[in-house]
């Protein structure tokens, strides 16, 4: 889009050969129809379809709803051009906010939000990118409905200083995991290739208010991809850490030992097996020796027969032959094989 303040184009409007002239807010604007270049990714196809659908839905609003959007737009601002902030119409704002909300998996918002609440800046202490780790660390948590949006570029020459136009949305809205945003899988899924050591990746992150669609300012950082990282991942046992050569008896697992207290966070869907009142989990790596011991946690039945009784479980943890085993052994309450173990449990 080009804004051309020449009086030679005063009053000129219309379209010809892919160029459209119009006058908006006292400015004469020429714009060229843009065509996407290259093959569209699945994410781009989805986003363009969403944009079209949302744009069309504006006409379905009542006149009162449109007026509310116009009122809100008077307080919002569009990107500045030639030093003068562009006016944002109610329709522009409706589309922009609903595209953001759709990205975060939220439903269409027909009624304009009451106001534009200030959104905090993203704060993080480090970005680490290796061929098998892409993580933002030390993220200062913001509560819901704020969610983190991360955009990143494919790794490119370290000499490039301005690769911001190459960033694409890696995560459309996530909650940080206790100060950590591990986007490794999402990066590889979206970008399609591993980052190359020695090359540079451009990173942008901002908070989005998923209840309104308003987004905060982007925090930007460019990082050089390294071969190996000393980033200290916290000690957890998850489904990703299961030993594929052994049969584990859980359908979900997230045990986190990073509490700095005499407890761990136990989360597992135990399935039981072989008429034994326990569920075994086999990890493909050893747990740190200082963690090895016994835990005790609470559970609640959730089988197909509707049992919801409380249970207690001992959790035996030990290392063997370079791997670890956790055994969730039933103790208190009636035993049912399908039990969700959850919550803070003592470790001794």
């Amino acid at each position: 889009m080009i804004a051309l303040p020449s009086i030679a184009f005063e009053g000129f409007s219309g379209s010809a050969k892919g160029v459209t002239a119009r006058r908006v807010g006292g400015r004469n604007i020429l714009s060229c129809k843009c065509w996407p270049t290259g093959a569209a990714t699945v994410a781009q196809v989805a986003r363009r379809a969403s944009l079209k659908k949302i744009s069309k839905s504006w006409k379905l609003l009542s006149s009162e709803q449109m007026q509310e959007w116009d009122r809100l737009a008077e307080h919002a601002a569009g990107a500045s051009v030639l030093g003068k902030k562009a006016e944002l119409t109610g329709q522009n704002l409706y589309v922009r906010l609903n595209v953001n909300r759709a990205m975060a998996g939220e439903a269409l918002l027909s009624t304009a939000p009451l106001s534009n609440v200030a959104i905090p800046n993203v704060e993080f202490t480090q970005v680490v990118v290796t061929p098998d780790l892409v993580v933002l660390g030390g993220v200062k948590h913001e509560p819901a409905p704020l969610k983190l949006v991360v955009k990143m570029s494919v790794s490119q020459s370290a000499g490039i200083s301005n690769g911001w136009s190459k960033t694409v949305i890696i995560t459309p809205g996530m909650e940080d995991d206790w100060g950590e945003a591990d986007v490794t899988h999402l990066y590889l899924k979206t970008i399609g290739v591993e980052p190359v050591p020695g090359e540079k990746v451009f990173v942008e992150a901002y908070w989005m208010d998923t209840s309104t669609g308003f987004a905060g300012l982007e925090a930007r950082e460019s990082v050089i991809v390294i071969g190996e990282s000393h980033y200290q991942r916290r000690v957890k046992a998850t489904m990703d850490s299961l030993d594929p050569t052994e049969e584990s008896h859980v359908s979900s697992l997230d045990v986190d030992f990073s509490t700095g207290a005499p407890v761990a966070q136990f989360n597992a869907q135990c399935l039981g097996h072989s008429n034994v009142a326990s569920s075994e989990v086999y990890l493909d790596e050893q747990l740190p020796s200082e963690i090895i011991g016994t835990g005790m946690c609470i559970g609640r039945s959730n089988d197909a027969d509707g049992h919801i009784n409380a249970q207690s479980y001992l959790v035996y943890m030990y290392n063997r032959n370079g791997k670890s085993q956790l055994t969730f052994a039933h103790r208190g309450g009636p035993y049912y094989t399908h039990t969700e173990v959850f919550g803070t449990g003592i470790i001794y």
Binding site: F257, S258, T259, A261, A264, T344
Partner: peptide, 18 residues
């Protein structure tokens, strides 16, 4: 009768004595 803990505290679980 509840303990509410936090994660990613920069240290692992500290074992107690049964």
């Amino acid at each position: 009768v509840t303990m509410y803990a936090q994660l990613n505290q920069g240290a692992n679980t500290i074992k107690g004595t049964k």
